[in-house]
């Protein structure tokens, strides 16, 4: 069992856990993920490593409630425990001195982009961050990301804070402004990563996205997570999750994420009934 040392409710529906997992903490690197299973009957789900404390032996995850597992996780409190916490999985994000790196984060992904922005900064890159949320009340860690960035732009879909609109607006302006951008990292909902990739493509700027197909083992054993990149089939859990956004077959990713829509709904309804009984 892996103990939850700390829980923070960041904004409605998005929570942070600090989990005791010394061996994982020792090895974690930016861009890697863990596979979590709550208990014997639970599903295995992937969650990005948002931070780690090698001395303290803990790993931080930030997750959004979207279905049964994440909703059940949200009910756990500090002092509780998770049955399985496997990692660090996937290849680390490629970090080097590129020059200027733009980090674009959508929604809860502000947490997952944080270690990447930090590592890019430490390598001596100029880091420009763009942070997008649906509205002000879903925005968190603006200050943290600002402290890791040379420049930070915030957008909200409804204009309740920062610039009104989505992240691709300022991204496009930045590229048009003549700022010499050497690399873009875009992490967030798949649709947002797709549109960031489409935005940077005409400018020929390499854009790395972190793909989130459905996974089971996370170690290359099942092929559930297969994605098509540059016309080749890849297993996102071992060949990624980072890929060149300009090469990704996005429609395939979207389609494969919908495989279990009916079952996910059934599972969620049955769980809600069991809670309310």
């Amino acid at each position: 069992m892996y103990k939850i040392l700390l829980k923070q409710d960041l904004v409605p529906g998005i929570h942070l856990f600090k989990v005791a997992a010394p061996a994982v903490a020792k090895k974690a690197q930016p861009g890697q993920f863990v596979v979590v299973r709550i208990d014997e009957k639970g599903e295995r789900i992937p969650l990005t490593i948002a931070d780690w404390d090698r001395e303290g032996g803990s790993v931080t995850i930030v997750f959004m409630e979207v279905g049964t597992t994440t909703a059940r996780l949200a009910l756990l409190e500090a002092g509780g425990a998770i049955a399985d916490f496997v990692g660090p999985l996937g290849l680390p994000t490629h970090i080097e001195k590129f020059g200027t790196v733009v980090c674009v984060a959508g929604g809860f992904a502000v947490a997952t982009i944080m270690p990447i922005a930090r590592a890019m900064r430490q390598k001596g890159n100029k880091v420009i961050s763009i942070l997008g949320a649906r509205s002000q009340d879903l925005l968190f860690w603006e200050d943290k990301l600002r402290s890791l960035s040379d420049q930070l732009i915030v957008t909200t879909d409804d204009g309740s804070y920062g610039r009104k609109g989505v992240v691709t607006g300022p991204l496009k302006e930045l590229l048009e402004s003549g700022e010499k951008v050497d690399r873009v990292i875009a992490i967030g909902p798949s649709i947002m990563m797709k549109f960031c990739s489409l935005t940077t493509e005409p400018f020929g700027i390499k854009t790395i996205v972190s793909l989130n197909p459905i996974m089971v083992d996370g170690t290359g054993m099942c092929g559930c997570c297969r994605v098509s990149v540059g016309g080749e089939t890849k297993f996102a859990c071992v060949d990624g999750p980072d890929f060149d956004g300009h090469q990704v077959d996005w429609d395939l990713l979207f389609a494969r994420q919908r495989i279990y829509l009916d079952e996910e709904k059934r599972s969620f309804e049955q769980w809600q009934r069991s809670v309310h009984r």
């Binding site: 599903e43 049964t68 089971v216 079952e263």
Partner: peptide, 10 residues
């Protein structure tokens, strides 16, 4: 044994 066990299969 889905949905008692939470992992689905088609």
């Amino acid at each position: 044994r889905f949905p008692e066990y939470d992992t689905p299969v088609k």
